[in-house]
Write a protein that binds this DNA or RNA. Structure first.
Ligand SMILES: [Zn+2]
Ligand SMILES: [Zn+2]
Ligand SMILES: [Zn+2]
Ligand SMILES: [Zn+2]
Lengths: 148, 148
DNA sequence: AGCATGAAAGATACTCAGTATCAATACTTG
DNA sequence: CAAGTATTGATACTGAGTATCTTTCATGCT
């Protein structure tokens, strides 16, 4: 997992400035690490405005330093990125995020290109779970809703 | 693919009424079929209010008659559902949607449960493409952005 | 250290997607 | 047809994010 300093360096390498606001934001963000909303950040980091929070998120997304993922209902959520292509396992209760990668799946999705006549330009995979902690604490989960 | 009558019957079977607004909405929606936004529907169906369009969308989603999918940037899009669990291939240019299913992937994602200690409650897979039509008409595509 | 310059920040207004409220209307059933 | 409930429309509102515009900060130069 990337550290605050790693990220600030990456920002500078991209030709942007490592400012105080960005540092404070990154520290807040790193303290959460796995799974948070933009508004949570806005609420938690003090002395940094809403617009700056969103601008920084956009910057980090562009640099590939942050992941934007989608809950079952479409609600957005962010997670610090690890290097390289990967996907996410998200707890539908607490929003905790875990990364994963399965080269088999990558190969299968790449092969879709052939049967399709279309150029594949990307994909998204999200796996929704109830994590062990939430399972203990919680009531019964409704089964997989029709995703399609 | 489901017809308007199929869907109206399913609505009635769910204990809801097959009203004129719902019929008109479904006809507009079926004419598009593959890939549209809620606001496009609002604009295209006449004599049906915004709130009703969104309410009907929500109803159809609950009944599994409609799919809500997510573009690369997180923008929402809808598509008439086919029966059973499946995923989507979406053109990033025109928004056309094609369904697909790969039992291999289903099995792999189910196995994640084991390595995870968590109960898998669902997943989402979206494959982003430039469809043949758009590829002809268009400029060069930027390669897969960091999805993670 | 002092200053010029452009990047970044703050405030605010705005857009887009979707929900809540509530009075008016349309279905259904007796 | 009347009563009662589901549905609708209008409108206001929330949540997520962007645009604009003025002020402030970081940098590099002297
Ligand atoms: Zn992948
Ligand atoms: Zn579908
Ligand atoms: Zn699946
Ligand atoms: Zn990630």
């Amino acid at each position: 997992m990337l550290t605050v300093e790693d990220i600030l360096h990456a920002i500078e390498d991209g030709g942007y400035r490592a400012t105080g606001s960005r540092r404070r934001l990154l520290e807040t963000l790193a303290a959460r690490g796995e799974g948070f909303t933009a508004e949570e950040l806005v609420g938690e980091v003090r002395g940094v405005g809403r617009a700056t929070v969103y601008r920084t998120i956009r910057l980090l997304l562009r640099q590939g330093l942050l992941c934007k993922l989608t809950l079952q209902d479409g609600a957005p959520r962010y997670s610090l990125s690890r290097v390289g292509h990967h996907h996410h396992v998200v707890c539908v209760r607490c929003g905790a995020v875990r990364d994963f990668r399965q080269s088999v799946i990558e190969r299968i999705l790449k092969d879709l290109e052939v049967g399709e006549g279309s150029a594949v330009v990307g994909h998204r995979i999200e796996v929704y779970v109830v994590c062990p902690g939430c399972r203990e604490a919680g009531v019964a989960t409704s089964p997989t809703a029709a995703t399609g």
